[in-house]
């Protein structure tokens, strides 16, 4: 019972965090000084997520030649093809190949 309550509470909290500003600002005029920082949330959070995803539970960031190679391949293919599928294929294949060499 306690476990279900915990899941429901975290679910409700998560929804509230996702909905808070979308609902609160629905009818409000958002001033330009606030709109400017909002534009940089996407780039900043994605870049921060990339580093966070490479961080293990001890707080160590593992990034070496295989990871950087995969990023370069994925980045170039994304730029050229604009395709998520090819970005995934290129990035992972290069990552696997380089990893097997080291």
């Amino acid at each position: 019972m306690g476990d279900l309550a915990a899941v429901v509470l975290v679910g409700a909290g998560t929804y509230l965090m996702r909905a808070l500003f979308i609902l609160a600002l629905a009818k409000k005029r958002i001033p330009e000084t606030v709109l400017i920082p909002l534009r940089y949330i996407g780039s900043a959070v994605l870049a921060a997520l990339i580093v966070a995803l490479l961080t293990d539970s001890d707080g160590k960031v593992s990034i070496g030649v295989p990871e950087v190679s995969g990023f370069l391949a994925g980045g170039v293919v994304a730029y050229r093809t604009r395709s998520q599928v090819w970005t995934l294929v290129a990035g992972m294949v290069v990552y696997w190949v380089v990893r097997s060499l080291f």
Binding site: L46, A47, L49, F71, L88
Partner: peptide
């Protein structure tokens, strides 16, 4: 590891000006 790769791809495709590059690098 595919998640950071795909996020890199989205950043590369979606970045439109250098303040966004600054935001990503600083983050």
């Amino acid at each position: 590891f595919a998640i950071p790769i795909l996020f890199i791809g989205l950043l590369v495709v979606g970045t439109e000006n250098w303040p966004e590059v600054v935001a990503a690098l600083a983050a």
